[in-house]
Computed example of a mutant assay.
Amino acid sequence: MTSPTRALTTLTIRDALDADLPVIRDIYNDAVEHTTAIWNEILVDLESRREWLAARLKRGYPVIVAERDGKTLGYASFGDWRAFDGYRHTVEHSIYIDKNARGGGIGEALMRALIERARALDVHVMIAAIEAQNTSSIRLHEKLGFRRVGTFSEVGTKFGRWLDLTCMELRIA
Rank of each mutant, 00 (worst) to 15 (best):
A37I: 10
W39D: 02
N40V: 14
N40A: 15
E41P: 13
E41M: 14
E41W: 14
I42F: 08
I42H: 15
V44P: 03
D45F: 14
D45V: 15
S48Q: 03
E51H: 14
W52T: 00
L53H: 06
L53M: 05
A54I: 11
R56D: 00
V63I: 15
S77N: 04
F78Q: 04
G79Y: 03
D80T: 04
W81G: 09
W81C: 05
R82W: 04
R82G: 11
A83F: 07
D85L: 10
G86T: 09
T90S: 13
V91A: 07
V91P: 02
S94D: 00
I95F: 09
Y96F: 03
Y96V: 06
Y96L: 05
I97F: 05
D98V: 06
N100A: 08
N100Q: 04
A101K: 05
R102D: 11
G105Q: 13
G107F: 09
G107P: 07
A113I: 04
L114K: 00
I115V: 12
A118V: 06
V123S: 00
I127P: 10
A129S: 11
I130T: 11
A132E: 11
T135R: 13
S136L: 14
S137V: 02
H141R: 07
K143T: 11
L144Y: 02
R147E: 03
G156S: 08
G156M: 05
G160Q: 09
R161P: 00
R161T: 01
W162M: 08
W162N: 09
L163D: 02
D164M: 11
T166I: 10
T166A: 12
C167Q: 15
E169K: 07
L170K: 05
I172E: 02
